[in-house]
Design a protein around this nucleic acid. Structure first.
Lengths: 338, 338
DNA sequence: TCTGGCACTCATGGCGTACGAGTGCCAGCC
DNA sequence: GGCTGGCACTCGTACGCCATGAGTGCCAGA
């Protein structure tokens, strides 16, 4: 177990390194922090911290920088979540209040988060599977072609074209629309499959095939293909990353373009509260030199999706966590109101 | 007027510089191209081209690189559009054919374009003003709260919440929905304002206020706020930009995050065909060291939106133009089919 | 257990030099 | 008049060398 002072030294190293971006030496540490001991003592502590793998030196005659393990300890034990100032909270509220629809809410959230944290922001659209159906609309495009539109309680709209095996009249269409809505409106997506199971049977034999096809598409849209969408922003902040620029930024940009990667990234964070993944804790290789701070958000008590930021491992964890948490709360409120 | 050979020299310089990313000297030029003259002669030609402002040297004892003006001449007079190979065209078709909805079409197009050109791709969603209305849906969320959904012929879906001045019954809502659709379905967005002008009058006095409010929101959605959406991708290709990296890439990333800037960028290209804007020809300062190749695309004969790529001024213009044109054509086809 | 002292390491930056790519110019040739 | 070979010149780049100094590890003593 590390002594109290050694933890204090680690905290000081993390804070200084995050501020200056340069390896921090024993002398500078004692000057900037009131540790009450001499540089020599700090050096001994540093040697111990290095033995334990919490810090490392880039080269022999340089100061120390925290390792992923060091950041992990810092986040878990040494630092809290820094609350936002009143002004910042007011700004968030004002900025989000003007949103006109879901796209707008998500878009504003992304920009807000990017600006607040000066990092790359990622916001997932409210999940389909945990949402409820507000309305299902069916439109006839051609005799044997139907457009299916699903609207969720969070304001998300999904639509699909359906090619029917046989022509489908307007009356039958209206009939299906009415019955479908009476069954699924207000229900959770995950319940829909059972609710519509026996629906084809109640139709004319001619139409049964078509009804089944439409339902299949509906289920595919809602359940199987839980194709979660998301929005990212603030990529310009990547230029703040460091000096060894191109090598680091390239894989990060590539990872950010792969929605699948990002979704997995957010999905991996099982903790219902805030999750911080540091450096190599991220499964994706391109993100090995980044940290991801994510948290669930939702309109009610339950989380319907996640949002977070991606930044250098050398980030201001307390501040970032504070901003992420605050934004998630306000977005939840906005969604609940609409 | 420049002699034939001098134009040939310029072409050779552009091609070599695009390939190697390094200033090209007279000796190297004569070795790689069959100009039929000696390096000394080429040097004279280069001096002339430099006097005219088509090329420049970064420093005294270096080769020449093309200026914006040089690229302009190259694009206008010296190079054509390079058609894609049969394999590439097949790949495009296959890739786009799997799309399930409009978001998917646009998403795939962006990825395709980015991959094909190895540059940043920008695709605008089909414009609202030039589209026609397929269907308008009204849903009651609360007694005095209505959700308005507009579906376009290109598959785009817009939705808004409307707060009504007075409660609005289901019957009235159904009535409004029916009358609205019979008037505007299949019509161009730009015609909608006149078509619905006298609609409130035909309703009960109690409902007139609400109808007017709903219509106002509709018009706002369709016409006034022609808030065009777009999607970008391939930002990882920015790392290919050059050596003086951070300085160039930062403003570009910032510009790309500003939808307004991008829309203006695409909008400025008045030419119905392909437009190439080189370096300082771009109004936005952050894009002064990039070139933008854009073209309109559409389901019928008419263009409903634009797409293009943003890359370094030092880009393979013929190849890029070929790819952009080809993709635009295929996307047009896909939209026409759906 | 802490501290001051000391020898050691090594990245960084300044400086001078050699190298070579590329140029401009000029005299001569076709 | 236009093209060519030759030649002197410029100047950015790479390399080696050295001084500097930040930072370390270790040890003896308090």
């Amino acid at each position: 177990m590390l002594s109290e002072r050694r933890l204090e030294v680690l905290r000081a190293i993390v804070q200084d390194y995050v501020g200056t971006e340069e390896p921090v030496g024993s002398k500078a540490l004692t000057e900037r922090h009131k540790l009450g001991v001499s540089p020599a003592t700090v050096r001994n502590d540093m040697a111990a911290l290095e033995d334990e793998g919490y810090i490392a030196q880039p080269h022999t005659s340089a100061g120390r920088i925290p390792t992923d393990k060091g950041y992990r300890l810092f986040v878990d034990k040494l630092a809290g979540v820094k609350p936002l100032s009143a002004a910042e909270r007011r700004a968030i509220q004002n900025f989000l209040d003007g949103a006109v629809d879901l796209d707008d809410v998500v878009g504003r959230t992304v920009r807000l988060l990017a600006q607040l944290t000066r990092q790359v922001a990622v916001v997932q659209y409210p999940s389909l599977t945990r949402s409820t159906v507000r309305h299902v609309e069916l439109l006839s495009l051609a005799p044997a072609r139907v457009m299916l539109v699903v609207i969720t309680d969070t304001g998300r709209v999904e639509q699909r074209h359906v090619d029917c095996p046989a022509p489908f009249g307007e009356t039958s269409l209206a009939d299906l629309r009415a019955r479908l809505n009476s069954r699924v409106a207000g229900r959770r997506f995950s319940d829909v499959p059972q609710l519509v199971q026996d629906l084809p049977e109640s139709f004319d034999r001619d139409d049964q095939g078509t009804v089944a096809t439409v339902l299949a598409t509906l289920l595919e849209t809602l359940v199987e293909e839980t194709e979660e969408r998301l929005m990212i922003g603030g990529t310009a902040n990547l230029t703040r990353f460091g000096h060894d620029f191109p090598l680091v930024i390239r894989p990060v940009l590539e990872a950010l373009e792969e929605q699948v990667v990002l979704l997995k990234l957010l999905g991996e964070a099982k903790d219902p509260g805030m999750t911080v993944r540091i450096g190599h804790e991220n499964a994706h290789e391109g993100l090995n030199s980044t940290s991801v701070v994510s948290v669930g958000y939702g309109s009610g008590g339950e989380a319907v999706a996640k949002l977070g930021v991606v930044g250098p491992t050398r980030m201001d964890y307390p501040g970032t966590m504070g901003a992420v948490r605050a934004v998630a709360r306000y977005v939840g409120q906005i969604l609940a109101e609409s």
